[in-house]
Amino acid sequence: MTRTPSSTAITSTATDPAPAAVGDARPVALRGVARTFATPSGPRPVLAGLDLEIAAGEVVAVIGPSGCGKSTLLRQVAGLDAPDAGEVLLGGTPVAPYDARTAVAFQEPRLLPWRTLAHNVALGLPRGTPRTQAREQVARLLDLVGLSGSAGLRPRQVSGGMAQRASLARALARRPGVLLLDEPFGALDALTRLRMQDLLLEVHASRPTTVLLVTHDVEEALYLADRVVLLAALDPAAPGAASVRSVITVPGDRPRDRADARLSELRAELLDGLGVPTHHHVHDPDLHHSI
């Protein structure tokens, strides 16, 4: 825990939990969160005793091996799922089912195929947004993600990268207190992924919301996040149940130099934590590893 949530954010939400405050960056607190799924072969614990504090406006990346519960963790914060034990707080109040203070960009774009990109983005707007204002906001968001020229196209008519940008715009349309990104760039080609990462940084710089980013890409985590959380199974009594293994504070201001030597040190450390042999030689930024 390198930061404490700003006291103003807590007092403002404690006195005014009304949705009028949606749009302010929210701190997130997970305390003792546990989640077990029932499977045909018996209960499968996924998260256990997970504690994590995220300051308002902070960008936190969660990494961990495949199937370790990263997405489950994110779903707890979004209110798409509820923990079996522990609590999840947004700005000091418990997260509600499908919490309106959060917005999720899923791993797949999940756009409605029969709607144009503009209408898909409009789906993210808070209910009751006046029509003219809605049109303006959608146009602004499409412009932000570089889709102004494709507003009238339907998801099947555009590339995966464009669909994912529309999905991001839809999430931003909600003016979320916490933006939740579930491997949002995972399915994109390498170049588009780099562009999307810069786009996310631009968006965050223009409107600093709290961002929780789940990724399997160590480079991406180090490039985007203030802190990187490594999830792993810690308790030998509950194999498979992940908890926070370590938290790394990433040095340097964004946008960062992707070839920064300090980052490659951290990359080696994180990959090591993920159980991937890195064959890392100190101060050799030319080495790149993929998981």
Binding site: A78, L80, Y98, A100, A103, V104, F106, R110, L112, L123, G124, P126, R127, R170, R174
Partner: peptide, 8 residues
Amino acid sequence: EAGRAYGL
């Protein structure tokens, strides 16, 4: 789920 997540 996406619909629900966006308040529908």
